[in-house]
Design a protein around this nucleic acid. Sequence first.
DNA 1: CTGAAAGCGCTTACAG
DNA 2: CTGAAAGCGCTTACAG
Lengths: 353, 353
Amino acid sequence: MAQDQKTGRPRLTDVAEIAGVSMKTVSNVINGYQHVAPRTRERVLAAVDEVGYRPNLSARNLARGRSGVIALVVPRLEMPYFSALAGRVIERAQARGWFVLIHETGWDRAAERAALEGHFPQRIDGLIVSTQRLSAEDLRMRTDRTPLVLLGEHGYGDLAHHVAIDNVAASRTAVEHLLDRGCRRIAMIGADPDDGDDPRMRGYTEALGHAGLRLDRNLMRRIESNSGEEGERATRDLLAQVGEPPDGLFAVTDWVALGAIRALHLAGLHVPDDVAVVGFDDIPYARAVTPSLTTISPDRTAIAELALQMLEAQLSGGELAEPVDQHVPFHLVVRESTTGIGAAPAEDQEPVA
Amino acid sequence: MAQDQKTGRPRLTDVAEIAGVSMKTVSNVINGYQHVAPRTRERVLAAVDEVGYRPNLSARNLARGRSGVIALVVPRLEMPYFSALAGRVIERAQARGWFVLIHETGWDRAAERAALEGHFPQRIDGLIVSTQRLSAEDLRMRTDRTPLVLLGEHGYGDLAHHVAIDNVAASRTAVEHLLDRGCRRIAMIGADPDDGDDPRMRGYTEALGHAGLRLDRNLMRRIESNSGEEGERATRDLLAQVGEPPDGLFAVTDWVALGAIRALHLAGLHVPDDVAVVGFDDIPYARAVTPSLTTISPDRTAIAELALQMLEAQLSGGELAEPVDQHVPFHLVVRESTTGIGAAPAEDQEPVA
DNA sequence: CTGAAAGCGCTTACAG
DNA sequence: CTGAAAGCGCTTACAG
């Protein structure tokens, strides 16, 4: 049997020869095009199986005028939320024969804008950007026409495709859980009380409102960045300034929550007996720390899958080609930081390194 | 100016035309081949700059008979050690125009062996496997000839290329640090006392030996997997069985250390005042938890870079083509779990999500 | 519903 | 040191 000259692997031609059809027909079958006689299709598939044929993606992409590469832009891959997200994006992309070019911006605004303009070391077919600093203006200014999907807290109306959980509902759920546990003085670390557009702030406000509690600005703290250090600082400041400590605390991210817990700890407060804490993101550590962290868990697989579908749609001009804002599911994971140590068992049953 | 028919991007031909040379010459310059007249090279580079030329990797790989893809095989990407490693491998691969196909085995032995045999959804040019369960026999049985580099604790002599830190020296360093802090009853969680080949066990043994301390088998605990849960269980068992608790504890991984700390905590022991703890890996969480974790930090960038170099060498039949076992640097990061809370400040200065 | 042929943008012997 | 030409393995109008 004739084979790939350089690699010894079967080629489309080999399959065609065995099946007794032309290359075009094999191509049609492999790419799932219509109008192939059922019997022909079967013969082709049998031949594919027989020789173990796998398409050469370089050749395919070259012929199609595509690179077969999409870029995923994140602040820093090493951070748990983004590595977990990247894992799912890579997985869903692989299922489509795409590779993912990971690109880190380091939270740099200019780097994020450059990414929007498609400035990558190689040509890409699509772009997924997970970041918070972009403005609507940045999007309007964009000249590059590479298909784009935005992830992250904020949507941009019809300026760009966007996938996220319903952050308002998720925050409300988190705060309602604290209310259910009997908390009445609930602090919020990491949202801007003056930003009416901040979805996590709105969820917090709504939950307290529904419970008939008044907002206490002394219990809300802005932070410079979603870091543990900032969470710790903001919580320490809060404790120093309010007479009576809060009995519940909602942090914008798990990492901020870990910092907040550290501050509570150093102030001699017990979690959750003195202060119950809820985070956001469900990073792997959330279940490994003591106390393990109650948090909002977004469906990352759904985020990745939907983002990839949106890219595909833009490439083919299909249904999802027009910018849309879509929500994916989330759920609250209840752990020790709101129920008490020992009440919920440690969950991490998988070996880890 | 003529351009890529389908994408509008400049091609090699365009550069050649502008520079007034043949495609071959441009190719020589771009690929850094010898014997191009300096003035010709300059003209070509100027033309490359002028049009912003970037090679089409699909075309290059097709012509070269390569896929431009290497596979990275890990148990689970989401686990911090592996995501951090993957980040570095992706980075070093990108620098060479390679893409990384991430492949998860879920700690399944059969999946690991299948990976060794090159069973991937697409053709790959090289294989990096980070896992612990492979045996020398698995390696000898291997029929696939794809260039391979192994990562992880164990080397395999001349059976395969291998990159790692010196695990014996690293463990010794960890335990010596505990000795320096005055610990005399040092527990080891996660090594097999009966496995003389276990490098982390050997480092532990050597350090105690040098200090003139005798080994106490009651202080050594095997675990089923490197999970927090197992670390917690083993530590709880240890505390229940020894009369006097240890004053120091060395865990095979950070995640195991987090579990151990949880057990100590629940037993009413204070870290580090009652028991000082050292982990291994320096996962991002190590610096975020309370107390932050003293640990061994392997140079992951060096691991990734060396692994890529070894793959390149095998592909080109160069110097590193013969299987070698190479070490990369590590260092001890001293944090609160051995020095006390507040003694070392929280380090995470970067915003995280 | 299927075939024959051109073309995607590179690299690489082969010549000079 | 450089050029002209074939070839990598696909896809895709174009014909039938």
